[in-house]
């Protein structure tokens, strides 16, 4: 097996003034050009795992390695060229055009007083094309639907030319059509070589995108495997503490509660 892109090695994390472990003894390897989903109840530590992956938090114990090198040995700008994040929602008080907003993703490549140049604009346009929004480059951010905004946020992360994309519940407030649009976009991205780590509450989204699913609860990994291995009634019922049924509908797994 080739060298993993991102590794969590026995990672634990707790907030400075708290004695509760948010993540404990978590280990995971992400391969290049694969999609991994972290799945688990509210407050299980999913978002914290993402924050650890781009250096926002440093682990209290254990270590993260990115492309074989300790994560904390990267500078912020170096890390910004490797890892892009897509937040769940973003407050956008000012009316940027889409291209201007995506261009902000070029920041890791520019020194503090540098302005983005021709090459950066071109890269931003390509990123917009990757999510299918290139025809809307001059539209205002405030005319976008929730789903379109999510695609623009992905494009901004892609403008960083990252090897790893982190998405926090990317579909949680999207309607069905936009969900499908987003899922298709993420599948195409992994095909093109970008690795994806996402959190989600939605089994159908996770099973459509992910090659690997990690079940967690209370900061601990319960199980990790392919969707087929993870979507079992015992595992899911144990994770959520209620009785769940898994049905196969036309080759897709659907999780139902009683």
């Amino acid at each position: 097996m080739s060298q993993p892109l991102l590794e969590y090695q026995n990672v634990s994390f707790q907030y400075p003034e708290s004695d509760q472990m948010v993540v404990s003894d978590f280990s995971l390897s992400l391969q290049a050009a694969r999609a991994t989903a972290i799945f688990g109840p509210n407050g299980a530590g999913k978002s914290t795992l993402l924050r650890l992956a781009y250096g926002r938090y440093r682990p209290s114990a254990g270590e993260l390695r990115l492309a074989g090198k300790a994560l904390h040995s990267y500078t912020r700008a170096e890390l910004g060229k490797q890892v892009g994040i897509v937040p769940q929602r973003e407050h956008t008080p000012f009316e940027y055009t889409i291209l201007e907003y995506v261009l902000l993703g070029r920041a890791p490549y520019l020194s503090p007083l540098e302005m983005p140049g021709e090459r950066d604009c071109q890269r931003a346009q390509e990123a917009l094309a990757q999510v299918g929004m290139h025809e809307h480059a001059d539209r205002s951010l405030h005319t976008l639907s929730g789903g379109e905004l999510q695609l623009v946020l992905i494009a901004r992360a892609l403008a960083q030319e990252p090897r790893l994309l982190l998405l926090d519940e990317p579909t949680s407030h999207l309607d069905l059509a936009n969900k499908k649009r987003l899922v298709d976009c993420l599948k195409a991205l992994t095909k093109s070589g970008v690795s994806i780590l996402l959190t989600s509450h939605e089994p159908e989204v996770v099973s459509a995108i992910a090659d690997q699913i990690v079940l967690i609860n209370r900061g601990r990994m319960l199980y990790s495997g392919t969707p087929d291995e993870v979507w079992t009634e015992e595992l899911l019922s144990a994770t959520y503490g209620i009785s769940l049924t898994v049905e196969d509908v036309g080759g897709r797994k659907v999780v139902l509660w009683d």
């Binding site: 781009y54 902000l104 920041a107 540098e114």
Partner: peptide, 22 residues
């Protein structure tokens, strides 16, 4: 001189951090 950078510091903390901004 910091006029483009100003866009970046107006982003939410997590996003600005991930773009390599102090």
């Amino acid at each position: 001189l910091m006029r483009w950078r100003l866009n970046l510091v107006s982003l939410e903390d997590d996003v600005a951090f991930s773009l390599g901004i102090a």
